[in-house]
Design a protein around this nucleic acid. Structure first.
Length: 477
RNA sequence: GGCGCCGUAGCCAAGUGGUAAGGCAGAGGUCUGCAAAACCUCGAUUCGUCGGUUCGAUUCCGACCGGCGCCUCCA
């Protein structure tokens, strides 16, 4: 089976065929670092993480580019409001983004171009567009893209024949453009821009880049320099970017290069809270650090995201998060069992390696599910089928644990949802051992009241006990 | 007004023109000193409503009801 992906351009699931296999250039729209990203933002980044990992698992050589939007309307406003220079304001949020990404186990992109460090590429792109006559300088001194000169405009969003809703957010500045739908490539520097240090000189006037321009310039610059092409294999982001952001990116990129900008457009749906999209605007947001501070393990967030298809809205609530957490615990238990058994598991006679066979099946099924437009919910279901079957076989002392362990870990390398053991201080560890020893003595003398008291005390400190024939095991929740 | 998405058990949710995955929660059981973990068994005669197409629809078409998103800088 081969990978198929839903392409927003065609609104169909299509076989995936990169321009120059096995290389895949992947560009994902990164955060705007005006504030902390919330977990709705991170849902998209997690979906992209899964995409990246599955591509690599499938043998592709992925070059992943994620930009950092560190200059735009919001960053400038936020910096001005804080009385800071732009870079001064965004720096901590850039740092926070990387911290949060790590917490959520998102694999780092290969490069993170920043808008403020890519101005020359943007200026060059604007000049190219001016030369081609598809961009013009407006009366207000800004440079606009003339969508009328780009016949394919609207293909991605299917909004070409749209009529703007009367009184919608079209408002204030369209009179400076030839066509109200034209968008700004380069915005003339305003006092507030100068105030925060967000203005650059350019042949067509001092100003700052428009948001859409940033992504086109940065992505094309990277693939041109590295691979001598001006086409991305995959461009991904949230559904809210389809229009106007990605539509405009296509227009300005293709008008400049004459090449298809991206072969596949992937868009992830929203993370909702009680049916409404999570958004700073609505105040219904939760950041990754909020979760972390609440003691929520990243290993619960990831499966929560996996259990909903990326093109479906995901509804978040405490019960759902707790459910994911419990499920992950079970995966962790199985992992532990496989490790224990794997250690003592000498290869049995051919045909008795039941666990190895089961793991082969689940690896195949997970790959097949993800090949089908990243059907992570299906993949997760398959994994849990394996969990039950594997536990059953482990109860029966079936062979093949070592192989199953290796395969299981390979699958977890894609989903990455195993809980991490909490780091313990030597003192705490010693205390636990002492309590266990005391409990063992009590049990030997049938003093179960004392034994249970100790168990409760340990549990109060998140230490869970499990009495097995081979002794008492413990784990920290 | 335009474009688009969604409505499947208490919660999160897959899926298919042929009679409903998986997880969590819940109930019973095996095991256990008791637990825990694990395993076994149990849950929608039904997939928002009403029509249509079909031998057959949750799945296709239409209408309606309900929820949501985008329509110039929101992942």
């Amino acid at each position: 089976m081969t990978l198929s992906l839903h392409n927003t351009l065609t609104r169909r699931v299509e076989p995936f065929q990169p321009l120059v296999p096995p290389r895949v250039t992947l560009y994902t729209c990164g955060p705007t670092v005006w504030n902390y990203a919330h977990i709705g933002n991170f849902r998209t980044f997690l979906f992209e993480d899964l995409l990246r990992r599955h591509l690599e698992f499938s043998g592709y050589e992925v070059f992943h580019i994620m930009n950092l939007t560190d200059v735009d309307d919001r960053t400038i406003k936020a910096a001005a409001a804080a009385g800071k220079r732009l870079a001064e304001h965004t720096a901590p949020f850039v740092e926070a983004f990387f911290e949060d990404s790590e917490y959520l186990r998102i694999r780092p992109a290969h490069v993170y171009p920043r808008a403020t460090e890519s101005v020359p590429a943007m200026v060059a792109l604007v000049e190219r567009l001016l030369e081609r006559g598809v961009a013009y300088k407006g009366e207000d001194g800004s440079v606009y893209f003339a969508i009328g000169k780009f016949p394919g405009y609207g293909r991605l969003s299917n909004l070409d024949r749209r009529e703007l809703k009367v009184g919608a957010r079209v408002a204030s500045d369209e009179y400076k453009k030839d066509d109200p739908r034209d968008f700004a490539l380069w915005k003339k520097a305003e006092p507030i821009d100068e105030q925060v240090g967000a203005a650059w000189d350019a042949p067509f006037g001092r100003g700052r880049p428009g948001w859409h321009l940033e992504c086109s310039a940065m992505s094309l610059d990277e693939v041109r320099r590295r691979f001598a092409v001006e086409t991305l294999d995959i461009h991904a982001g949230g559904v809210d970017l389809i229009f106007p952001h990605h539509e405009d990116e296509i227009a300005q990129s293709e008008a400049a290069t004459g090449c298809p900008f991206a072969r596949y457009w992937l868009h992830g749906e929203f993370l909702n809270v009680r049916g409404t999209k999570m958004s700073k605007r609505f105040g219904n947001f939760l950041t990754a650090r909020d979760l972390r501070d609440q003691g929520v393990n990243a290993a619960a967030v990831r499966p929560l995201v996996w259990q909903t298809h990326y093109r479906q809205p995901l509804d978040l609530n405490d019960e759902a998060l707790e459910g994911a957490r419990q499920g992950v615990k079970r995966l962790g238990e199985l992992h532990e069992r496989l490790r224990e058994r794997g250690r003592s598991d000498s290869a049995g006679p051919a045909g008795t390696e039941v666990l190895a066979g089961l793991s082969r099946d689940v690896a195949r099924d997970v790959a097949a599910a993800l090949d089908d437009d990243l059907n992570a919910p299906q993949a997760v279901a398959t994994v849990f089928d394996f969990v039950r079957a594997a536990n059953r076989e482990l109860d029966r002392a079936a062979g093949g644990a070592a192989t199953a362990l290796a395969t299981f870990e390979r699958i977890m390398g894609v989903l990455d949802v195993l809980p991490t053991p909490r780091a313990l201080t030597p003192e705490f560890r010693r205390w636990i051992e002492e309590q266990l020893a005391a409990r063992e003595r009590a049990r030997k003398t049938k003093d179960f009241e004392e034994a249970d008291r100790i168990r409760v005390e340990l549990r109060a400190r998140d230490v869970e006990l499990e009495d097995t024939p081979s002794g008492t095991k413990w784990r920290v929740l």
